[in-house]
Nucleic acid binder design. Structure first.
Length: 886
RNA sequence: GCCGCGGUGGCGGAAUUGGCAGACGCACGGGACUCAAAAUCCCGCGAGGGUUAACCUCAUGUGGGUUCAAUUCCCACCCGCGGCACCA
């Protein structure tokens, strides 16, 4: 037999397997299905590195084992090719991103093929292929049509020097003398925040399910935990604190009484008259009032409105007390009442109210615009200012309410507002503060300060000399009585889905000024293709470069046919990867016009869910969460089966560079497998990556052990020559079988548990035994090869054929190990818990006989001499421990 | 600060979940083969002591504890990596 020459045999077998279509998954197969998935790579200019290989090899091992176990296995591959590195390279070189991508994928494909992964190449997908992103766009439109996509003003990172918007990944934190500063990754200029209208996906509407339905899947606990922390579900209660004693008190001192809402009116009689009138007005509103009330009631603006509200001697149409906003809807009658209106507006303004007016016609004809204006106002106003309002507080510990000594709402500096609130539990008057540590956008933007039970509250109380009250906990009844409503909040924010960039999927929406609405691009017009541009940089005002292409932007409204403009933002990198596990199943459909039917094909039903998905921990809170979200939405639309896309998730540890840093081109520490494949062979590299350490743990790349893996394979190669021929001294053949059987069991279990390092180590041990044996039956060695074949597929197939087999080793069934209880067992003898001797006895020995035998051992006699055996512990088949007295 | 993961020979790491600590591999030392080197094969390889043998003592980040017995369980702490970060 020739020398082991991996270069020759690896290329040979790769061709044979491709020709025999060994790795193509059959859609209609009656075998049980197994869908193995790895995170498809981003084809960067650096080429594949040894870190990619770890995950791909691991699932390749699993996939090959499953095929041998009789499953129809789908192990697909594709390219997640939209993204910044390509775009930045395009900016630098002026080359087209599509061409750069093509070049990179060609290189990656070659590299992956040289490593012998059993991917089904017939299903290769590419997120930048118009056929692919046509579907990404269509799926986005399903979100839009379901009301899950909306536009809102969101701050983006803006580099004032480069004059472009930056993705979060392009912003780095730098430490300066005065603290941490966010700077532009390229030029180092401090990043500013700029508000831009952006598309968002309402992932928060699925927060609860994304949390709860983690119970349905087999993910590592740390992954579940990290997702749960990210979603940040908090159960608690919402409690209203009434605000009293408004400042400055602008009201004339009448006979006065504290009214229902805690502020003064003139005198009781006037108040009663006003109340009657207000009630009457509420019963018979004007058409405009009626329409507007529909939009304001039930907290639909996010704030609580009252109508026909008495304020001093006036009745205001709509009032939001917590924001101190008054909305007046005027008819023509006001033309006669100018003086009164003046007086009332002046009074309200002086009392701290903001007053906005709309005309009846305005409200009736353009309700949505009016409501938008009101919402904008509400947004601009601080919370809880004004007269007789309430402050809503979300707390996870409502039972501590008796210990509340202050209220603090979000503010830029610590400051007493001069206002007080009433603790609904004990009617105590407590001060309202603004505090730096309270954040807008968390909970209700205000906290009840309980210094005795919260560290930050305590710190604040100490700093500002506020009382600290330690008290018994409130019971459920008290909480109900004070109107505490059970409430759940989430840390998760909606997903900002707009990028002012070029290299992404155009968002397929059109704004028509006439319809005053965003219109979806009709299915028949998809994909909205990325037009070719000359410059790939975002524009001076931060818009996508697409905004500069007039001919592309200007289009017709799909609804009314009038002049309209396209959305110029593109989708984030995470869009295409949110559904790629479906794309692999859509072989033919992907080229066709997107429809619900095309998606809900039998293939998708057949293959879902993904049975085993391996990927990196770094994707836990982004990609993994996003794609679960998409799947749930698609499931609600009855487009895909099942609540969860991935039945089982595992994580690999990162392979770091020699220096222990993350591999990246900018650090110049990327290790490319090509040269290693040339020097050692793909099989050696695969074995080494699986052997170098525990799969789930990060490990620094080192080539020191590679030679050991190569030696192992060389020894396997040599062993093939000795099979059934070797004569002479050594272990008897029959002694090999128990070891072989236990290795079969061990390797099988280890692969399932992703303990590849110990699987390989047990194969090495078996080989060591083979080498020591007098002769090796061919069947034994074939079984060994089969166990080795998922790890070193080329070498295994080559030797398999040497032994006379005609079909590929990868078509042979996975061996079943037999548990053979050995006749003899080794028993550890301990004296006072310390190992003193080791004896070999029959496995069938009785406990009594064993104890006797132990006491007869010369070493034991020596240790026991002159002492008493107080206690004897016997662990069957394992150990005897003698406890001696003094 | 909080959450998660980890800490075992010169190095990567094993240890059937409480039962021989250091499997397997790398590196290293000695030997065989060779004119020589490489490759290969054999032997050794945690530290200290010991008549360099048998054997003994110590040793799994540190300090305590539980147990006949602890790398494994409990308590307190130290260090490294990753994530979140005034989250009410």
């Amino acid at each position: 037999m020739k020398k082991y020459n991996p270069k020759a045999i690896e290329a040979k077998w790769q061709k044979v397997w491709a020709k025999q279509k060994l790795n193509l998954a059959k859609d209609g197969s009656k075998k049980p299905k197994f869908y193995a998935l790895i995170e498809f790579p981003f084809p960067s200019g650096d080429g594949l590195h040894v870190g990619h290989m770890r995950s791909y090899t691991a699932l390749d091992v699993v996939a090959r084992k499953r095929r041998a176990e009789g499953y129809e296995v789908l192990y697909p591959i594709g390219w997640d090719a939209f993204g910044l590195p390509t775009e930045n390279y395009a900016i630098k070189t002026g080359r087209q991103p599509a061409l750069i991508t093509k070049q990179n994928t060609t290189r990656y494909r070659k590299q992956l093929q040289s490593l012998g992964f059993s991917f089904d190449w017939s299903r290769e997908v590419n997120t930048t292929d118009p056929n692919y992103y046509k579907w990404t766009q269509w799926l986005f439109l399903q979100f839009f049509k379901k009301g899950l996509a909306y536009k809102a003003k969101i701050a983006i990172n803006w580099c004032p020097k480069d004059k472009i918007g930056l993705a979060n990944e392009e912003v780095v934190t730098r430490s300066t003398g005065s603290g941490q500063v966010e700077v532009c990754e390229r030029c180092g200029t401090a990043v500013e925040q700029r508000e831009k209208d952006q598309w968002l996906l309402a992932i928060t509407k699925y927060a609860d399910r994304l949390d709860r339905e983690l119970d349905l899947v087999d993910y590592p606990e740390p992954v579940k935990l990290q997702q749960r922390n990210w979603i940040g579900r908090r159960e608690g209660a919402e409690i209203e604190f009434k605000v009293i004693n408004p400042t400055p008190d602008p009201l004339p001192e009448g006979e006065g009484e504290v009214g229902e809402f805690g502020y003064h009116t003139t005198d009781p009689n006037t108040w009663r008259v006003l109340q009657d009138r207000a009630l009457e007005m509420r019963k018979s509103p004007t058409p405009a009032e009626k329409i507007l009330w529909q939009s304001l009631r039930n907290n639909s603006t996010g704030s609580h409105f009252r109508r026909q509200q008495i304020i001093w001697k006036f009745i205001a149409d709509f009032v939001c007390l917590e924001k101190a906003l008054v909305i007046e809807v005027d008819g023509d009658i006001h033309d006669y009442q100018k003086v009164e209106d003046e007086e009332r507006s002046t009074f309200l303004r002086e009392s701290g109210f903001k007053v906005i007016r709309f005309h009846n016609d305005e409200v009736i004809k353009n309700t949505s615009l009016v409501v938008e204006k009101i919402k904008d106002q509400l947004k601009a106003l601080p919370f809880g200012e004004g007269l007789g309002g309430v402050i809503k507080i979300f707390t996870t510990r409502p039972e501590t309410i008796f210990g509340v000594t202050f209220i603090a709402r979000a503010g830029k500096a610590d400051r007493f507002t001069g206002e007080y609130a009433v603790n609904p539990a004990n009617q105590e008057k407590i001060p309202i503060w603004e505090a730096e540590y309270v954040m807008d956008g968390v909970g209700t933007g205000a906290v009840m300060g309980v210094p005795a039970h919260d560290e930050r509250d305590l710190e604040f109380a100490k700093k500002h000399n506020l009382p600290i009250k330690d008290v018994p906990m409130a019971d459920q009844e008290t909480l109900t009585k004070i109107g505490a409503k059970p409430h759940t909040t989430y840390k998760l924010r909606d997903w900002v889905f707009s990028r002012q960039r070029y290299w992404g999927e155009p968002i397929p929406l059109i704004f028509c000024a006439k319809c005053n609405e965003w219109q979806p691009v009709p299915d028949k017009d998809l994909p909205v293709k990325l037009p070719k541009v000359k410059k790939y940089e975002p524009t001076d005002n931060g818009d996508s470069p697409l905004a500069n292409i007039k001919s592309w932007v200007e289009t017709k409204c799909p609804k009314c046919g009038g002049a309209a403009r396209r959305e110029t933002d593109v989708m984030p990198n995470w869009a295409g990867s949110s559904w790629y596990y479906l794309a692999y199943l859509m072989k033919k459909a992907i080229g066709q016009r997107p429809t619900s039917l095309g998606l809900a094909s039998s293939n998708i039903k057949h293959w879902l869910p993904v049975d085993w998905y391996n990927g990196g921990m770094e994707h836990t809170t982004l990609h993994l969460l996003y794609s679960r979200f998409w799947h749930k939405v698609l499931n609600d639309l009855k487009l895909v089966p099942g609540k969860e896309p991935y039945a089982k998730r595992t994580s690999h540890g990162l392979i770091l560079a020699h220096d222990g840093e993350k591999m990246s081109k900018s650090r110049g520490n990327v290790v490319n497998p090509d040269e290693l494949v040339k020097r050692f062979g793909a099989d050696t590299l695969r074995i080494y990556e699986m052997f170098m350490g525990p799969f789930g743990q990060a490990i620094a790349w080192s080539e020191d052990g590679l030679v050991g893996s190569r030696r192992f394979l060389e020894r396997v190669w040599k062993m093939a020559e000795k099979v059934d021929k070797k004569k002479g001294k050594g272990v008897a053949v029959s002694d090999l079988n128990p070891k072989l059987q236990s290795t079969i069991i061990k390797v099988g279990e280890d692969i399932e548990a992703m303990k590849f390092n110990t699987a390989i180590s047990s194969l090495m041990i078996l080989l060591n035994e083979f080498e020591a044996a007098a002769s090796i039956p061919a069947q034994f060695f074939k079984t060994f090869l089969k166990l080795l074949s998922p790890f070193a597929p080329h070498l295994a197939d080559e030797l398999w054929h040497h032994l006379g087999e005609k079909k590929s080793i990868h078509l042979a069934p996975w061996p079943k190990g037999e548990k053979i209880a050995s006749e003899k067992v080794k028993i550890v003898i301990q004296i006072n818990g310390k190992t003193r001797d080791l004896i070999e006895v029959s496995a069938k020995i009785s406990e009594l006989e064993l104890k006797q035998l132990v006491l007869e051992q010369p070493k034991v006699i020596n240790w026991v001499k002159g002492k008493e055996v107080v206690k004897t512990i016997v662990v069957p088949r394992r150990l005897v421990n003698l406890v001696l007295g003094d």
